[in-house]
Design a binder for these strands. Sequence first.
DNA 1: GTCTATATACTGATAGAC
DNA 2: GTCTATCAGTATATAGAC
Lengths: 228, 228
Amino acid sequence: MNCPTMPTSVDGSRQKLLASAERLFAERGFSGVSVRDIASGAGVNSALVGYYFGNKLGLLSAVYLRHCKPLNEERLRMLREFSRQPGGATLEQVLEAFLRPALVDAPDHNGRSEFTRLRSIISGENSALLEETIAENFDRPGRTFVDALARCLPHLTREDVLWRFHFLLGSLYHTGAHASRICILSGGQCDPSNAEASLAQLIPFMAAAFRSPQVLTEPADRLSYAAV
Amino acid sequence: MNCPTMPTSVDGSRQKLLASAERLFAERGFSGVSVRDIASGAGVNSALVGYYFGNKLGLLSAVYLRHCKPLNEERLRMLREFSRQPGGATLEQVLEAFLRPALVDAPDHNGRSEFTRLRSIISGENSALLEETIAENFDRPGRTFVDALARCLPHLTREDVLWRFHFLLGSLYHTGAHASRICILSGGQCDPSNAEASLAQLIPFMAAAFRSPQVLTEPADRLSYAAV
DNA sequence: GTCTATATACTGATAGAC
DNA sequence: GTCTATCAGTATATAGAC
């Protein structure tokens, strides 16, 4: 069954290291974890990190590359599917195509939601060397989704859509990070690690927000809602 | 002018260390920066970190405590002021009272927005020892604001309000982190480091989102917008 | 491919002079 | 309060045996 020319999922040291790194980076960030910890978690020798990935950053980069393509391909596949219907994709569908693949673990590619948590944590750290990888893999799909959102929202300027997309990203990252604050405040009622519950709340919430009228650019630079 | 009994803003080593730590922690996180870097940035000897704060974590804790109280006091002060008018505070006003003090630097307390960026980065890291500090300082104001939001939104369950508050926090943190992704995507049009522009976009966006109808709890555990 | 051993640098923390 | 000096531990990375 194990074809040597195309090993499907042999637990080689390389794969073990990738899995361990993904788990630990998502848990403690890049600087918060050592290559020794990763190797120990994978049950392999720490020198193999150098052999397979060059150095620690190469390992993080490999974790990124393993997930970037499948994630964005599924996003775009869902978007294309939704867009085929007459009238094009609804706003809710565009949002679902963007959010669902990031939060729900696919049956073939596990760790999809863990990868979202990883991105959330790493995005804060000084990841100047990852900047290129991120830009190459997320800029184009990002633009595609901004375009799709703009098509659903002809009353908005592109600047408005971009701001709203930025807020959407924040909510997605915060949800993917499994922030426990809301869990504690709610006494366990709200659990962001429940992907389906998060999507059921996040999609209609964001749809209503995106549909709100265009923001007027105030001449005053200090806008306050004190004076109604 | 310098009264010795109450030195207003003498640049003692302690204050220099706090300022340097705040800047560097906000930039690179807790594990990403060393006490030597912080001391060097402050222009003081690294041994003074132990003298004034005990250890590195004590320094982070001191940075937190310096900002927590003024931040939340201003939030609550604004909320009380808005609530005095007949009919109570509007939804937009509750949101402004929560968001503005976190994003705009007060004239007396500088680094308010930097502190929001700090919290954003640290919240991802394993900060189990800060958990207590955060809970003590943010749980009560958080509950107060959830209550105020719920009063504006009688059509929602408390669980709905909590979910939406969670999404609001995500957008706030992501904006406070000065995420550069949107800046690049927009060609500089959208700049989250511009606090007033962020507030002008974020408040009406979130107000519309909070006002959206209650989320129906679906019997199916996989809700999809494919079938309209 | 996988291991041991190690080079080299940096980490947080502290003892003790001034 | 501030300094120098230094401890013990850990970091990443690599050279070289097998």
